[in-house]
């Protein structure tokens, strides 16, 4: 029973989202503007993102509840995706842009031992920049503040450790934005290096 209740609620909300999505999709196809449809969609998402975790939490406690909610929503959504696929009309035109080279003589143009842009030296250098500079930036940002505190508690340490793990990927995203702007990348790198020097300096002092 404890499993059944959140499962039913989860399935119901995914169904509701699907229903709203279908309605909105039809409206978009018919090019009818409806602000209500968007409000309903938003409302459905609000229900899904509040009611279902609550149901799972009610049955299994908040720690396991959140994990089960994450997994169950994914599994149930696939049931809906498969259902939608079964009931939507199929296109009879099957086009393939990949030709089976074993059976067809019309092979795609073939480049012997060609490597793409991604593995060229230039992109290796860029890749190193967008990984290392954000690493320095995020590490300095997260490790500097506790350095100024007299007494470092467990919560402070864990907060900054996890912040580092979240800020590093986000900095990679931001740093990549500057990749084609040399001035900005130089400013960002300089800032990171200054922060690193500050951390080392503070530690030595």
């Amino acid at each position: 029973m404890s499993l059944l209740l959140p499962l039913i609620i989860n399935f119901f909300t995914i169904g509701l989202i699907y229903n709203r999505w279908l309605l909105r999709k039809q409206l978009t196809t018919k090019k009818i503007k409806s602000k209500y449809s968007f409000i309903f969609l938003l409302f459905s998402y609000l229900i899904a993102f509040n009611l279902t975790p609550l149901a799972w939490t009610y049955s299994f406690g908040w720690e396991f509840g959140i994990v089960y909610w994450a997994c169950a929503s994914t599994v149930l959504s696939w049931a809906v995706i498969i259902y939608h696929k079964k009931r939507s009309p199929h296109s009879s035109k099957i086009s393939r842009n990949t030709i089976d080279i074993g059976n067809d003589k019309k092979v795609k143009p073939y480049k012997l031992l060609s490597l793409d842009l991604t593995v060229r030296l230039q992109s290796t250098y860029k890749l190193l920049i967008i990984i290392i500079i954000p690493f320095i930036f995020s590490a300095c940002l997260c490790f500097f503040l506790p350095l100024l505190m007299n007494n470092i508690s467990t919560n402070t340490l864990i907060f900054f450790l996890f912040s580092f793990l979240i800020i590093w990927p986000l900095s990679i995203l931001e740093c990549h934005k500057f990749m084609h702007k040399p001035t900005q990348i130089i400013i960002f790198s300089s800032l990171s290096m200054c922060m690193l020097i500050s951390v080392i300096g503070t530690k030595l002092v």
Binding site: I17, W21, I81, H84, S91, R96, N97
Partner: peptide
């Protein structure tokens, strides 16, 4: 971020189209 049709295609699975 790079998936602008995240909601529009939420339940779509077009296996009858091209392989890509």
């Amino acid at each position: 971020i790079s998936h602008p049709k995240i909601f529009i295609e939420a339940f779509l699975l077009r296996t009858d189209k091209s392989n890509r």
